[in-house]
Amino acid sequence: MDTLFDVLSWICIVLGSVTCLIGAIGLLRLPDVFARMHGAGMIDTMGMGMILLGLMFQAGPTLVTVKLIFIVVFIVFTSPTATHALARAALQGGVEPQVDGELEDSSSAGPGGDGAP
């Protein structure tokens, strides 16, 4: 049973590390601020979640796991708020998001919800 949890834990930690690495490469490769937020979002969601999930498998059912869950919940609630605040600040600070096309409103997105600025 212990080996099973060990294997699960290492799979999660390796997956999380790889996700973080890809996110950081995205942070370097993507061309503008708004695009880079998607790379940072990978680190904030799946990288963080997977690494801390792996640590939970290592810790077992103890108070340590509870604290790890607190950290995950906290980051999941705060990271989109911080990203949104940053995006709004960038928008009002004069950074125009570069656009490569238009989304034609063929789907049922909602009445009158089209018209990108």
């Binding site: 996110g23 942070l27 940072a40 680190i43 904030d44 963080m48 990271s79 911080a82 990203t83 940053l86």
Partner: peptide, 12 residues
Amino acid sequence: LAVNTVGTLTVM
């Protein structure tokens, strides 16, 4: 954005 990411990484 990068410093925020570094903060998350530091937590991990």
